[in-house]
Simulated scan of single mutants.
Amino acid sequence: MKIKWFDKPQKHDYPAAASYLNLTKSRDEAETIAGELKLADMTEFAAKDIFRASGLSFLGVSNSHVEHDTAQIIRGEKLSPLLLYRDRVSGKLIIADGYHRLCAVYKFDEDATIPCKIV
C-alpha cells in the first residue's frame, strides 16, 4: 500500500510541535524551534531509523490516534510530514509532531520513507 503525503507540514502542525516542545523547553525556546522548523527544508528518513534515533516505543493499534491515522492511510488520504528536533543536550531525536503518524506508517512498512523537516 502506497502511503500518501502532503508536500509540506500543515499549518496547525507547528503550534502542536511548539506545545509539545514546551514540556521540556522554555516557551521562547519552543517557539524558536517551531519557527526554525517552518524555515527548514524537507527531507526524508526511514520509519525504523526515526524510531531508533528517538528511542520511543511503538504505539499499537489500540491507540485511538494511531487508529485514526491508519484509517487515513487505508482510505488513501494524505498525511502530514513529521516535524523533528535534534536535542543538542540529550543527543536524542525529538518527534515534535507526528508520533502517531509514524506509528501508523510503521505498521504498514518499517522501511517506509517518511517526509519530514528536521532542525
Results as ranks from 00 to 15, higher is better:
A112R: 04
P115K: 02
H12E: 14
R88C: 10
Q10P: 06
V66R: 06
D69H: 11
S80Q: 01
L21G: 13
L82M: 11
G76L: 01
A34C: 07
M1D: 08
F58Y: 12
S26Y: 02
E36V: 05
E36L: 03
A16H: 13
Y99W: 09
A53P: 04
A34N: 09
S19T: 09
K4F: 14
I3N: 07
R52I: 08
Y106T: 02
F6Y: 15
E110N: 10
I114T: 05
D41K: 15
K11L: 13
A112Y: 00
D28P: 07
A30N: 10
Q10G: 04
D69A: 08
L21R: 12
K11Y: 12
A47K: 02
I94Y: 07
K38Y: 00
A96I: 01
A104T: 00
R75P: 07
L79E: 03
Y106S: 11
A53F: 14
K8E: 10
I73K: 08
N63M: 04
E31I: 01
R75M: 10
K107C: 06
I94K: 09
Y14C: 13
E29V: 12
R52P: 03
K11W: 14
Y14Q: 12
S54A: 03
Y99L: 02
S90E: 04
K92P: 03
E29Q: 09
A112K: 07
K2L: 14
T43E: 08
Y99H: 15
A17P: 01
A40Q: 05
D13C: 13
D7A: 15
V105I: 07
D87H: 09
R88H: 10
L84A: 03
H65C: 15
G76W: 15
K107M: 10
A47G: 08
E31Y: 06
E44A: 15
M42A: 03
D87I: 12
I3M: 15
V61K: 09
C116S: 00
D7I: 14
H100Q: 04
N22V: 08
F6N: 11
L102K: 00
S54P: 01
L83F: 09
R52D: 07
I50A: 01
Y85S: 02
S19Q: 12
I74Y: 09
A96L: 05
L83D: 03
G60C: 00
K38G: 06
V89Q: 02
G35I: 05
